[in-house]
Nucleic acid binder design. Structure first.
Lengths: 268, 268
DNA sequence: AATTCCTGTTACAAAATGTTACATATCCTC
DNA sequence: GAGGATATGTAACATTTTGTAACAGGAATT
């Protein structure tokens, strides 16, 4: 909060402050910093004074339970921005998996910029909303999927970061360790290994060294992973729990509303 | 997107639009609707045209996997607002556990209001940031905690919604079914029952009927649940993984920065 | 008040995952 | 490039969780 004004930044506060600033613009004004593998940018519980944008490299984001268990809540890749939730303290530790290049921007000052620039504010909201979507996806994975499904999902998710086309084989690099994967997927190292072996035997994936992955049939892998296809319009899913009637809700008209209360009368 | 203007709302768009609007204010202008137990407000995959604020009652929020498994990603209680992530489609189904009273506000118009009122925009961001925090907490629970720890965490979490004081016994109502709890905690009904029984035998909780819960020793229950104490300043945790050096990062000074790159040199 | 249905509980067998132990591969330093 | 340290892979065994099934209890209806 007591940061001295930097001329590099101050032009944002002027009339240009109303321009369509993007997060990328904001961070572009800052110098690069480096964080080597195994070192941390910040720790869980630290006062959250800065936000960070990753330029190169990968971070693991984790929390530690009182008894020492480690839960990796996510990984940060180039382009990702950390600390945008504007909490008082960081909720997780951010540790470099590989050497990371990043830029930082002060928390409070970014908030001030966002207050003056709705577009920037909206972009921040979008980033957090996407993180929330990813977190919910992960909740589904951790709560409902088997070990093999989790590993398949993880490989596919990382593959699709590189190539969006599921119909063609994908080759990519997986920088994190097996322990990272395990702590992210809620499994042990051994279970991860077993699952990878099975996927290899099924001809769906193969490995070269520890970190290079080949997805031979991403499409089939997706089906195997129990990938949720929701959001694909026209896709009707058969379910066997109290969740059948998927017909679209119709009464979303928004005329001048009647004074009386309405009732959601969607059949069960 | 083709909503006709409503006079009830339009005064927000005028000069008053710059006032410190709160989400509560915005929804207060709308009529109440009711949704009876078992019925849904919206479905996963529906086009997201409205946001909702719960006035009374409880909703379960869930996604369905292609093979029918149900993952409850959360519950919505009075005061909670749904749909603020402004995605094109709802990512989950919102179904009433009890009869629910709620108010709705059109997606696009709320976005427009937020663009004119930084305070409102900021409040929306806070809501999503809190949801994100809860989702990460849940990821830790699902990935790292045992069945009994999960149930203990769940009971405690719901108890603390009513009473913030962990040192005194808590009595509260748990409106959802055992199946809801199971699908939320990534367990089966039977495992939930067994866990509850053990907690009962340990003298930590007791039940009256299906939905009334007594937490006799919330403090002890919290310890049992492996509750993360992070965020409590001065709390140093002993860990046994690659996460030891928890000393605070010091070089967060933010002077006019040197042109050269810096390095995060926190020891590992 | 009795019946019926639904939800919740318990016991035991089965499956999945975690543990332990050790072999092998890869990485890093010298 | 040698050698040690670390990470990974595999297998046998232990534990936890699940699946199945039978039963108990509560609420709503008759």
């Amino acid at each position: 909060m007591a940061y001295s004004a930097s001329p590099i930044i101050d032009h944002f506060a002027g009339p240009i402050g109303q321009a369509r600033l993007s997060l990328e613009d904001v961070f572009a004004t800052r110098v690069s910093e480096f964080c080597h593998a195994g070192h941390s940018i910040f720790w869980e519980g630290d006062v959250a004074s800065d936000t960070f944008r990753v330029s190169e490299g990968v971070l693991r984001l984790y929390r530690i339970l009182p008894d020492g268990r480690r839960a990796i809540t996510g990984f940060a890749f180039p382009g990702d921005v950390l600390g945008l939730a504007f909490h008082d303290r960081y909720f997780y530790t951010a540790e470099a998996v590989t050497t990371v290049r990043l830029r930082r921007f002060p928390h409070g000052r970014l908030q001030a910029l966002a207050a003056d620039c709705p577009h920037l504010h909206y972009e921040i909201l979008q980033v957090i909303a996407n993180e929330l979507g990813a977190a919910q996806e992960q909740m589904v994975l951790l709560g409902q999927k088997s070990a093999e499904e989790r590993v398949a999902s993880f490989l596919l998710m990382n593959g699709l970061r590189v190539a969006k086309d599921r119909s063609a084989p994908i080759v990519f690099d997986l920088p994190m360790t097996r322990l990272d994967m395990a702590d992210y997927l809620g499994l042990t190292i051994e279970t991860v290994c077993r699952a990878v072996t099975k996927l290899r035997q099924a001809g769906l994936v193969s490995l070269e060294g520890r970190h290079k992955v080949f997805l031979h049939k991403p499409d089939e892998l997706a089906r195997f992973a129990g990938q949720d296809d929701s959001g694909c319009p026209g896709m009707i899913k058969v379910t066997h729990q109290a969740s059948w009637p998927r017909h679209a809700m119709a009464n979303l008209n928004d005329e001048l509303e009647p004074a009386a209360s309405r009732t959601c009368d969607h059949s069960h």
